[in-house]
Design a protein around this nucleic acid. Sequence first.
DNA 1: TATGAATGAGCCTTCATTCAT
DNA 2: AATGAATGAAGGCTCATTCAT
Lengths: 186, 186, 186, 186
Amino acid sequence: MPKIILNIEDRIFLSAKELFYEKGYEQANMKEIAKRADLAVGTLYNYFPNKNELYFSVLEKSWNGTFEKLDQLQDNILSEKERLRSSIALIYEEVVDRKCMGVQVRKVKDLTGNTSIKNIEKKILCNTKAIFKNIKIKKQFENDEHMLEKLVYSLLINLTMLVDYYPEDKSKNIEYLYNGIVGFFE
Amino acid sequence: MPKIILNIEDRIFLSAKELFYEKGYEQANMKEIAKRADLAVGTLYNYFPNKNELYFSVLEKSWNGTFEKLDQLQDNILSEKERLRSSIALIYEEVVDRKCMGVQVRKVKDLTGNTSIKNIEKKILCNTKAIFKNIKIKKQFENDEHMLEKLVYSLLINLTMLVDYYPEDKSKNIEYLYNGIVGFFE
Amino acid sequence: MPKIILNIEDRIFLSAKELFYEKGYEQANMKEIAKRADLAVGTLYNYFPNKNELYFSVLEKSWNGTFEKLDQLQDNILSEKERLRSSIALIYEEVVDRKCMGVQVRKVKDLTGNTSIKNIEKKILCNTKAIFKNIKIKKQFENDEHMLEKLVYSLLINLTMLVDYYPEDKSKNIEYLYNGIVGFFE
Amino acid sequence: MPKIILNIEDRIFLSAKELFYEKGYEQANMKEIAKRADLAVGTLYNYFPNKNELYFSVLEKSWNGTFEKLDQLQDNILSEKERLRSSIALIYEEVVDRKCMGVQVRKVKDLTGNTSIKNIEKKILCNTKAIFKNIKIKKQFENDEHMLEKLVYSLLINLTMLVDYYPEDKSKNIEYLYNGIVGFFE
DNA sequence: TATGAATGAGCCTTCATTCAT
DNA sequence: AATGAATGAAGGCTCATTCAT
């Protein structure tokens, strides 16, 4: 298989994604991101105005790819529960293979006055909620208006944790996630 | 009620706990920790060799308090499920009221070569596992040897997320956490 | 009136002059100079070896234009004092309308080891001195061998200051400058 | 004479004043200011929040010293013209000996939104104007409402120029400055 | 022992200059 | 000859840590 030569923006994207994923926002630094992308620091700034926006761009773009695949999946002719399981499996693989970045972004500095973070979260929330479409929540939880949101956040952070702590357990992890969710549905 | 005069170590502990909790490891800085403890920066270094170890000490001590209370709870004469619910409620209150610091510590710098983090995680794991004592896991999950660990981590990160995102929902949040777990038990 | 199409060198000259005049040497940057000249940065370097020499070239050329006009003025059949007043008025208008760059160039970086600055100053000095031709200095200042030079520098920096601080006061400013000088002549 | 050991603030003040004087705002850099003061960069920031405010503080303090001496001079029992000459001589010596910083501060970046510059200029203007107290302007200039201001600025920039270009000419320079001004008075 | 000013490595960012196209 | 993306040295500033008092 021929080695794919990435264009510069993709190289920055990949390098930044890896480093933000490995070290988190604070520990990752621009010099190292540039180095890993085999570029000079200045070049990063031709594509992104600063570290903060690079972070959010990477975060968003990294999720956008996942959302597209998720969208396609929702059109499949599967039972609701089967679709849910497949969706979880898909997100799981995305996080593992593409090192999708975390959801717990609240503690990251946001120089735009927290609008960037809020927007990204909203988007992630919105897109991931779709996997619960047509599934009915148990009566006892109907009075919790944030139920779906909680399930989304819960799914995502549990998934991140499992990938991080038990990287070998793929199928068991997916089963775990699925089971943690269906308990809330009829 | 007389104001309790805390000794210096406790003052550092409290101040550091608050700031690490509010701002996270990176954004919290030693000068501010000292200031809030009404001490000089140098004094911090008489009690803790550096910021990193201060962080881990605070993290550990902060959990130790919770573990003690958790221990006492396990001796109560309650049904297993009731004990579980109470335990979850207890941890929830600890995190909210006493500003217990997070579990997701993997991304924090660890100058000891990650031994500190590992140790603390092990301890948290071990102590929290106790809340599942005598509860039987569903057959279908018996082959997952890390099941209990996963439940612990899951409980703790979900709890942190709920406290962070839905601070007003206390009782619903506890119900959510409880339900997310019992689904794995018979 | 047809738009005059300037050649590249003139476009650079104009753009650079404007920006150096508006922002000073440090704050003006090559990218913006290129942009205003509707050129690529690289093109600037085909005409001038670096920012520093561009600056001095522009400075010199900018004064050359003024010197030519000044030269023509000296041939007029006017009384000495009238010629002096007209010369001052001419320089004043040059600085205002054509955004002639300043004289106080000593504090600007000079990569040539200050030879460029010295040369330009000498030239400005020499050419501006001409406006004092045939005018006799008062006895009491005859022993100051730099008298004429001082008058030139003084005229130029005062002029710059007046244009900068009191841009609305044109005729009063010229009167001020004239009066500041004639006091030294018989 | 014993070497005076300056306290840190004075060392910063002196070092910064020298460098700003020699190189101007842009060319002077914090590392070098620190080095010349035999201090670490961080120390500068314990005394001044940033380069910009350091500059303005130095500028202001540097003039304040001069103003005090100027004040004392105004009380002397001298004729108006003699007082004027002495005042000019005093300012001249200040600029030479103490490397008083320039007045032409307009082109310096002002992060406070130009309020700092405006305030300092106003102060310099106000204090230096005092040397013209009780001296009557010639009729022909009475209609120029900025006359005194212009004379102040003019005096100061001419002085700076003379010190810069003809450092050896002290007494002739003072004579030049005096003469350039009295021409505007009766 | 407590203090807090001094330290300086290290970070983000800018911008004059280069060079492959 | 013109282009403009890539380069990387250099600058301002922060903050964990030290150490003289």
